[in-house]
């Protein structure tokens, strides 16, 4: 464990806290993409199948359960719970996620760390996580302006994988024969998708004023 990875996990947890607060206290899922939340639920449920046999640390196992529980709760609330479910707009949040799931599934089958079913599913979840934010970014693009809490949510989510990139660099230079090419590639793509958002987020928060984030 190193500071980058720890801060990355804390940033990821923060993103869950912000989103859960927003939809439970704010009683609204406006501006939040259910599609992205569904993809994250698939990512965590598929990646953390090894919860039952890969016990690398209590920290890991605990957070795996937390991530599966939170992502599932978020999907449940936005899909089924009133009044949140009425604030979800299927016309706006209509990114064809089958075009994300399909290619990631094929990539997981072809490019993975071993030919076992779990390794293929694991690789699939890594690739899917890299593109899971797309429906959310498209929804924000359509709306032009980003609600304050939502902007902090997306920023925390982007920072989490960005900090993981630093963690991988750190581990590469401090551990011998440390290789994680699949997550390195996917993590780079994932963080790259946030670059544009980060630029607008920084511009809007720079003056210390909480001017709303505007996406062109």
């Amino acid at each position: 464990m190193n500071i980058f990875r720890f801060l990355g996990d804390m940033s990821h947890i923060l993103s869950f806290v912000i989103l859960l607060l927003k939809i439970t206290q704010g009683k609204s899922a406006a501006g939040i993409s259910l599609r992205t939340q569904e993809l994250y639920m698939i990512v965590f449920c598929s990646r953390y199948l090894d919860l039952f046999w890969n016990f690398s640390s209590l920290y890991n196992s605990f957070l795996k359960v937390v991530f599966i529980a939170c992502s599932s709760a978020i999907v449940y609330i936005i899909r089924f719970k009133s009044p949140q479910k009425d604030t979800w707009n299927p016309e706006l949040d209509n990114f064809p996620i089958q075009y994300l799931i399909g290619p990631c599934a094929v990539a997981g089958l072809l490019i993975n760390q071993d030919w076992t079913p779990f390794e293929m599913i694991w690789a699939f979840s890594i690739y899917l996580e890299a593109v899971a934010i797309l429906p959310q970014l498209f929804l924000l693009q359509k709306q032009g302006e980003v609600e304050n809490l939502t902007s902090h949510y997306v920023a925390a989510l982007g920072a989490y994988r960005g900090l993981y990139l630093m963690n991988w660099v750190y581990r590469y230079f401090t551990e011998d024969d440390y290789l994680q090419r699949i997550v390195w590639f996917a993590g780079t793509v994932q963080t790259g998708l946030y670059i544009d958002f980060f630029y607008h987020y920084y511009q809007s928060k720079r003056g210390g004023l909480s001017r709303p984030v505007k996406l062109p």
């Binding site: 957070l63 071993d114 024969d177």
Partner: peptide, 10 residues
């Protein structure tokens, strides 16, 4: 395929 490091990360 690519026997990378064991999965010790989230």
């Amino acid at each position: 395929l690519m026997a990378d490091a064991p999965k010790d990360e989230l």
